[in-house]
Design a protein around this nucleic acid. Structure first.
Lengths: 194, 194
DNA sequence: TGAGTTTTAAATCGATTGTCATAAAATATA
DNA sequence: TATATTTTATGACAATCGATTTAAAACTCA
């Protein structure tokens, strides 16, 4: 009944994520995206709407694949303290392997887009709340079975872990040094010990 | 021998800082700056060079006023652990009072400009090293006089404090909630206790 | 006072921005 | 096969970008 798409929407979106992730929102033009995605601007507008909508789709895609995967993979499959450990170990390794220094697209969005845009404000804030909740579930489980210290309330510990996570993401963007990042998490881990 | 300036370079620069700080590099146009600084673009180019140079001047100005002041004000005048405490207390209060959610211009630069620009890469990295050194001097002094725990090496503690600082700056930009930020620093402070 | 120099104001440069109009191309259904 | 519908390719829209030119204005020093 109609002409079919010549491109795969999912791979096109993945390519858009990659470019937005590396260059941010403002520094990316529709023509950049068209070149990277292998499409004309008309196709982009037809399939994804305007630049703002496409960035939203890209960020959602990134969050779903990045956080959803990590949380789901560790929680339940590992003892609570190990889940937190595995989470941070993966963040550190990923940061050190990040040749292009793209950092974390959520953190990038938190600083570039969210402050001036209520919609992204809400999206970013929501994800951070979820990550905090993940940490808190881990800490509470560990405090119940005695593998995590009860010296601090689980709320505070979860907040500290969230802050630590964001700090690593920022620091790694300009100083991706193993000693620095691994040294940074050691005292936090010591804090968890009962 | 020549026509004098009609504007004060220092106040003009301060106005440029304010705008770059709030909107970042890419989202700020020369015309925006001209309007905010009350100058024509010709005057800007004549006095500060191109946009890149002006941003550099603005960032240097921000760093000098912001970090230089804080470090100098606390270190030496307060016992080591109190210096760290005062530093974080001020960061939290400043973040909560930040109506426009401008965050920290150094952190903003670390994410928007530094990854694609070796010059800013160097500048930002240098400041972070200095802040880390400040924390380390405080921790070592506290460990010497027994007011700070020796459970972790001073290097690691300084790195953790640096990470925490950056984390707060990011978090406050989307979730400037007192409970969150104050709860976040409590376990870190407990960690310092001997 | 007049020569020399710098800062201003105003206009404009080509390039690029996000977005859209038009029309040709390609398919499914009737 | 013809019609209806969507996707493409091409090109252009006004607006804005960073940066510069031109010439008038304002000052100092000889």
């Amino acid at each position: 009944m109609a002409r079919p798409r010549e491109f795969d929407e999912d791979t096109a979106l993945r390519l858009a994520v990659e470019h937005f992730w590396e260059h941010g929102y403002e520094a990316t033009s529709i023509r950049d995206l068209a070149a990277v995605m292998g499409l004309t601007s008309a196709s982009i507008y037809n399939a994804f709407g305007d630049k703002h909508s496409l960035y939203r789709r890209a960020l959602d895609y990134y969050v779903e694949q990045s956080f959803g995967d990590r949380v789901g993979r560790f929680e339940g499959n590992l003892p609570p303290r190990d889940a937190i450990g595995a989470f941070f170990r993966e963040i550190v390794e990923r940061s050190l392997a990040d040749e292009k220094r793209k950092g974390c697209m959520l953190v990038n969005s938190a600083l570039e887009v969210a402050p001036h845009d209520p919609e992204f404000q809400r999206v970013v804030s929501g994800v951070l709340v979820q990550v905090e909740a993940f940490f808190r579930r881990c800490v509470e489980a560990g405090q119940r079975d005695g593998t995590i210290s009860r010296a601090q309330p689980s709320e505070d510990m979860a907040r500290t872990l969230l802050g630590m996570l964001l700090g690593i993401r920022v620091l790694a963007r300009t100083r991706p040094e193993r000693d620095l990042l691994e040294g940074l998490v050691r005292p936090v881990f010591a804090m968890l010990m009962p």
